[in-house]
């Protein structure tokens, strides 16, 4: 039995210890905003926050996250920085197909919490683990820069 704190709510879950967090979010709790991409922490689509850090939920066993605060895209608007990121995303019309964007927003929020005014190099370093098939990178960078300069 694992006790998980997800988006501020406590969940008592009877799932195997080695089940990846992403499976718990999508299949057990129905929080399908977090996406499955590659399953080996190489694409960033499954990014969530664990105690404020961006982590890849596809390779994170549920036993490793018990007792830590998990935040997913569904609750990111409740985070002040997260709300700004979502707003900037709309203003810059960042999204194209959208599949990677929940991961992009989670990574951008984590980056801005750690570096409120990131340089181009820091944006590259912080966001490079999130790949986008539509190539929205330039708009992502512009949106993050806008928030950093605000």
């Amino acid at each position: 039995m694992n006790l998980l704190s997800i988006n501020g709510e406590q969940h008592q879950l009877d799932v195997p210890d080695d089940m990846p967090l992403l499976w718990v979010l999508r299949d057990v709790l129905g929080l399908t905003g977090t996406k499955f991409g590659c399953g080996i922490a190489q694409c960033g689509a499954c990014t969530v926050h664990l105690d404020g850090e961006a982590v890849r939920s596809c390779v994170l066993p549920v036993s490793a996250v018990a007792g830590k605060a998990i935040v997913t895209i569904e609750a990111i608007a409740e985070n002040a920085v997260g709300a700004k990121v979502q707003q900037a995303w709309l203003e810059h019309e960042v999204v194209q197909c959208g599949y990677c964007q929940s991961g992009q927003i989670m990574s951008a929020t984590a980056l801005l919490q750690y570096k409120p005014s990131p340089s181009d190099a820091e944006i590259d370093a912080g966001m490079a683990g999130n790949i986008c098939r539509c190539g929205t990178y330039t708009r992502i960078r512009a949106a993050i820069k806008d928030i950093g300069q605000a």
Binding site: A41, A54, P61, A128, G129, I131
Partner: peptide, 27 residues
């Protein structure tokens, strides 16, 4: 603070799990 080929690749393929500070992200 400056990126090159090696650090760009690290950013894309390694930092998600290993982190820039090397402390290990996933576990």
């Amino acid at each position: 603070t400056e990126m090159g080929l090696g650090s760009n690749l690290f950013a894309g393929a390694c930092a998600s799990c290993h982190r820039w500070d090397g402390k290990g992200n996933q576990s």
